[in-house]
């Protein structure tokens, strides 16, 4: 039996409900735009109850973005916990310019920086056509100046026949912001609407994360062997969304640049014995305050549950020739 025959035999059993077509015709006859789902009907019936519980309703509205939850591997159970810690906040403010609406959806961060998820929506799908490769610049107004934000990832495109949505994730080292400017260059404009191929939107989308110091766990470490040269890890800080490695570089004979530190492979040994590499591309920043005091910050690469106290047993770091493992001994 071929793969195709096996798949046909298995998956052709899956059929839409018998009343699907009937429901569709019913909607068409009523001239409504869409069918009411069983879920929607249930929700309508429950609305009176939900209205009375406005706090609950707010919690449901302020739902984590699936993109951020996936990027930071935050389980559903942990979402409200992180919200309570002030690690994340829902901004939800919008501004419109030239037919494109920009919304800052959610911010997540710790003392090392924060990630902002921006949504751009338009009724003209041609603007974000997949043929276009827009260049994106995102600026943040903080108290002192305007800084360009690092684009952290494309999270998604959603193109439909009558609308298009684009998500942009950005990283900033600041904890707060007052306004965001997004400039898109190289858009595909439809001829009817005469879009410029440059779009700029600026909005007052303020946020401020209110986490306290308790969200950062600082661990002393003990290495499994003595090193003769190269930087050693002095201590490690874990937050629910990041790992920051602090180096002691007293024994380093040659001057190391920030990039040299970033390129050193770092891996985590988790509580269950599995290993996870912190990729250098996820390193967000390296600070060299002086030759002996260096810190490298990584976006979280494992489930936030595993970053909780006790979740990580060891940190391994390669100096090019060998991997030295550091055991986490105590939190302070």
């Amino acid at each position: 039996m071929t793969d195709k025959e096996l798949f046909d035999r298995t998956f052709l059993k899956m059929r839409a409900s018998e009343d699907t077509l009937q429901e569709v015709y019913s909607v068409i006859e009523r001239k409504e735009s869409r069918a009411y789902s069983k879920r929607t009907i249930f929700m309508a019936a429950a609305v009176a109850v939900v209205m009375a519980l406005s706090v609950t309703a707010f919690a449901a509205y302020s739902r984590w973005s699936p993109f951020l939850a996936e990027a930071f591997r935050v389980s559903e159970a942990q979402q409200s916990e992180l919200l309570g810690l002030g690690i994340t906040s829902f901004v939800g403010r919008s501004a419109e310019s030239n037919g494109i609406t920009m919304t800052a959806e959610q911010v997540i961060g710790d003392e090392y920086g924060c990630y902002v998820l921006i949504r751009l929506e338009t009724d003209d799908p041609e603007v974000f056509s997949h043929k276009a490769t827009p260049r994106i610049e995102v600026y943040l107004d903080d108290d002192a100046s305007k800084q360009i934000l690092e684009k952290w990832s494309w999270t998604d495109w959603m193109l439909e026949s009558d609308s298009a949505t684009m998500y942009i994730g950005c990283w900033t080292s600041g904890k707060s912001g007052h306004g965001i400017t997004v400039t898109l260059t190289g858009l595909m404009g439809s001829s009817e609407q005469n879009y410029s191929n440059v779009w700029e939107g600026c909005a007052n989308l303020s946020w401020n994360l209110s986490f306290n110091d308790d969200t950062t766990e600082r661990y002393s470490v003990v290495s499994d062997k003595n090193t003769v040269a190269g930087p050693t890890i002095e201590y490690i800080c874990l937050t629910p969304v990041s790992v920051c490695v602090y180096y002691d570089a007293k024994s380093v004979r040659e001057f190391m640049t920030a990039e040299d530190y970033t390129l050193r492979p770092v891996s985590l040994t988790l509580d269950n014995g599995s290993k996870c590499d912190l990729s250098m591309s996820a390193s967000r920043s390296t600070f060299i305050s002086d030759r002996n005091d260096v810190e490298v910050y990584y976006m979280v690469q494992v489930s936030t549950e595993q970053l909780l106290p006790g979740g990580i047993k060891e940190v391994g770091i390669s100096n090019g020739n060998e991997v030295i493992n550091y055991r986490l001994v105590e939190a302070s």
């Binding site: 839409a16 409900s17 699907t20 077509l21 429901e23 569709v24 909607v27 068409i28 735009s33 869409r34 069918a35 789902s37 069983k38 879920r39 026949s161």
Partner: peptide, 16 residues
């Protein structure tokens, strides 16, 4: 299943 049925209905309505 329920959500897949709802999406099926919506997709067909869009086709219409």
């Amino acid at each position: 299943q329920a959500d897949a049925d709802d999406v099926t209905q919506d997709a067909l309505i869009r086709l219409y």
